[in-house]
Design a protein around this nucleic acid. Sequence first.
DNA 1: TCCACATTTCCATTATGCTCGAAATATGTT
DNA 2: AACATATTTCGAGCATAATGGAAATGTGGA
Lengths: 228, 228
Amino acid sequence: MCTNPNIVEVASLIGEPSRIAILLHLLGGKSLPASELARAARITPQTASSHLSKMVEGGLLVHESYGRHKYYRLASAEVAYALEALQAIASPKPIRSLRESDQLRALRYARTCYDHLAGQVGVALTDRLLELGLLQEEGKDFILSPEGKQRLVHFGVEVEEERKRRRHYARQCLDWSERRHHVSGALGAALTRRLFELRWIERLEGVRAVRVTTEGLQGLADEFGVVL
Amino acid sequence: MCTNPNIVEVASLIGEPSRIAILLHLLGGKSLPASELARAARITPQTASSHLSKMVEGGLLVHESYGRHKYYRLASAEVAYALEALQAIASPKPIRSLRESDQLRALRYARTCYDHLAGQVGVALTDRLLELGLLQEEGKDFILSPEGKQRLVHFGVEVEEERKRRRHYARQCLDWSERRHHVSGALGAALTRRLFELRWIERLEGVRAVRVTTEGLQGLADEFGVVL
DNA sequence: TCCACATTTCCATTATGCTCGAAATATGTT
DNA sequence: AACATATTTCGAGCATAATGGAAATGTGGA
């Protein structure tokens, strides 16, 4: 076959345990230094360095240097979508250990996907925004209604800040665990940043899973009527 | 990392040249016997057999036996989506040879994606159906309007036939070459079958690309106002 | 029953590439 | 200038798995 030799490169880059570990770690959305990625994948810095340069070469990652540190992040939202699409195939399979089961349950409940909120909580919040008419579906995107804009500005989300950028403003992102959409793009990211700011959600140590705090539970119910 | 060991298996299955060749061949949507897949990937039947059983084991393919032949096809639309998502990362890269360039151009113009029409032609047709109000976007799906139903029934598409099935009826499928949506799901498949029936489109030998016949060019323009 | 063909199993060869120790390079700190 | 830390380069060892020859199995036809 000779359609697109590149897809082989991309897929074989993803199809390696250490590199998957790195990619899934970066799917949390943050830029992370090589050393931390090495630790996450449980490999030595030498090995990680080799993997990282291959993934940059292959278009999966980009990096920025700050002094002696080098921060890596996913090259684009497309990479995140591809990873999620692979998870969508991979997830229906049976679960092995109880330990994994707990981790998976936590991921399904709430996690960051690239830079926005996903999982049951992400989908539930998106659903409420739609029900309240603050958001409307339009093709593969969402649009923010005038009331939605007002309401989110009042809530402290930098609604306009990101609109200038090239990036999709409010994209529909398919949730692999819920198999429904949640808000992605610049708006999804800004909203999620605000939830972290308010400490309604907190990152769990070392994993992509996210915890909803008691204030968050209360706040989401009061502010948006989200029931979890 | 230990989130989902399965994604490693799935991705490493995809990340192998011969297997990609087989998967891309099956992305055309047909069920094909092992021998033809071996030929497509330019490997011996022994090797193909090994790859095929691994991919069945890994949940990428399913097979049915008819006599001494064994027909393989993609296990689900999710597999097709994942492959398209990988292409979306892989495609922006430069093209090497003129030969490839021609093949790529043909693919971009019109191809089958799993079992429905994709590429410029697929997107253009979908656009016209939307403009004519026969189809409407709704979230990640399309809905067929009453006029749309009437019009497509008249055109010979088995609109209701497939509706009973579990499958998505009219899904929006992201086109990696056009980066826009086209009609997928049962309706997309039924519509595409009708286009083959009318010989408005024809499969090209051995590739996923599809040719629009002269009758097809005329027909699409007359019936739907599609300009290509 | 015999033959043709599709597919699979077994096996040895071979190539690819992951891995990490050692050492080099680069940057920041004291 | 000396040292600590982050990252990369080089090289050798090692494991995995893709590959196809040989032969077995399964199915259909004469």
